[in-house]
Write a protein that binds this DNA or RNA. Structure first.
Length: 202
DNA sequence: GGGAAGATAATCT
DNA sequence: GATTATCTTCCCT
């Protein structure tokens, strides 16, 4: 069962980010399905968040996807190498999004290994946002696509985590954002092997 | 096991 | 021309 639009179109993107833990992410690329449940996210909270591309309401060809109504994908290239997959939240004109940082894979392991150019399954296959996008075959052609589509979507399969299994810590790689870099907008499932590296917690 | 550095290109100044 | 929501390899302890 796909997540309804109402799940995404809430103003409180921090809550959306937290609730995305345990939801299943699927892609169907060239008829091949990959899937897994989300174990790590980060919230990017609109025009007042210095770490967000949309800080100050900056509207450019790249960021305009963030200004769309919640429930679409925001995919872009970072550091010249890595594609990053975000879920757009809130409503049209309010640029909030959630970065998917890590997924615990459950389906399509073989094609993930192929896409990642790996020979054997290791936890880092989907640990970190660049790795997740590559393993799932997500690229900029999917920027702006609806999450109700049959190419890229999320499902609720009844999996959830108790409060004491979830950690809320500062985000990664956003030191330039000054005081906003300290906000606890990064969420992950404690102890999951697929959570990305800075995991010195608990 | 851990820190440092290199790769590599769209985007904005 | 500088910057960037990163990953991997390499070399050291």
């Amino acid at each position: 069962m796909k997540l309804p639009l109402a799940f995404y179109q809430r103003e409180d993107v921090v809550t959306v980010a937290r609730e995305l833990l345990g939801k299943y992410l699927f892609t169907c690329i060239d008829g091949v399905i990959s899937g897994g449940y989300i174990v790590e996210t980060e919230a990017y909270n609109g025009i007042n968040d210095k770490a967000a591309h949309s800080y100050g309401g900056r509207l450019t060809p790249r960021t305009k996807t963030m200004f769309e109504a919640g429930g679409v994908a925001y995919v872009y290239l970072c550091y010249g190498i890595h594609e990053m997959f975000n879920v757009v939240a809130s409503t049209e004109g309010d640029p909030r999004a959630v970065l998917i940082r890590a997924v615990h894979p459950t389906e399509g392991l073989e094609v993930m290994l192929y896409r990642r150019n790996m020979l054997a399954l290791k936890p880092n296959i989907t640990a970190g946002p660049g790795s997740v996008a590559q393993a799932f075959g997500i690229n900029r052609k999917l920027n702006g696509i609806s999450l109700q589509s049959d190419t890229l979507w999320l499902e609720d399969r009844g999996l959830s985590f108790a409060a004491d299994q979830i950690a809320a810590v500062p985000r990664v790689g956003v030191a330039y954002a000054k005081e906003d870099a300290l906000l606890p907008y990064r969420f992950f499932v404690k102890g999951d092997a697929y959570v990305s590296k800075p995991n010195k917690y608990e």
